[in-house]
Amino acid sequence: MPPTSARAFATTRRGFLRLAGSTAALTTLAQMRSVPVAAASASRPGAFFSPAEQEILTQVTERMVDSDAPGAPRVRDTATIATIDALCASLDPSITAPLPTLLRVVDYAPFVFDLHFTRFTRMTPAEQDASLAGWMRSRFALRRQAFLALRNLALLGYYSQDETWPMIGYAGPLLRSAVEPA
């Protein structure tokens, strides 16, 4: 069997398409790092992600935190996505500018990386898990970094929701003002 690098670049149709697609997508993603936030997102005043991007983010987050599990608060029933959106809107644009594009790349990643002719948002949960695992295990560092960025945003959004705390046994802040509505 040839070494890994040779296998990865073997000129089969599938290998070629994967390589070409990966390179194109990642090059696009890398170039989009400098796209101004305003050009890349927000169709609603004050929102960072467009409605379409929010839907992708919601489905990504649902799989990241397994919110379909019994007893787990559903992402759509909490302010998880609003929390992530508000955080991204408040950060240095040079950090957050790639995120809208990244979400769209994630949505089309099944075409690009897996020759799976369905968008991420139209996959079953099991297929979505497999697609995300592809990002997590990718041999491309940039793809793994992108996965981590989305994962950590999802975790921040979900586990900062008060509704998730009883499930994990976290008693919450001691300050009453932190857990009561203003």
Partner: peptide, 8 residues
């Protein structure tokens, strides 16, 4: 590390 069911 990880995500999804095992992480949860």
């Amino acid at each position: 590390p990880g995500f999804g069911r095992e992480h949860a």
